[in-house]
């Protein structure tokens, strides 16, 4: 087994670990938060504009 063989195995393993981490994290988030919260994003809402307005209003 030479350097290139090790590199190929390392690539398979590294890629597999990264994908596994993402899948486990996604499952953890789904358990921890409700579906309503996770899918609550709204188009056309400018958070920064709202924050700036609140700042201007002294809130």
């Amino acid at each position: 087994m030479d350097f290139w063989d090790i590199l190929q195995y390392a690539a398979w393993a590294g890629a597999g670990l990264l994908v596994l981490w993402m899948v486990l994290d996604a499952a953890r988030v789904s358990r921890r938060f409700s579906e309503d919260v996770l899918t609550s994003s709204q188009e056309g809402i400018d958070e920064l504009a709202v924050q700036q307005q609140q700042h201007r209003d002294g809130r």
């Binding site: 190929q8 690539a11 590294g14 890629a15 990264l18």
Partner: peptide, 23 residues
């Protein structure tokens, strides 16, 4: 000087690393 290196693990690794970065 090394032939027959399989490109598939590097294809998979590239997608996984970049998807992780975006995630």
């Amino acid at each position: 000087g090394r032939d027959n290196v399989d490109p598939h693990p590097f294809v998979f690794l590239a997608v996984a690393v970049l998807a992780f970065l975006n995630y």
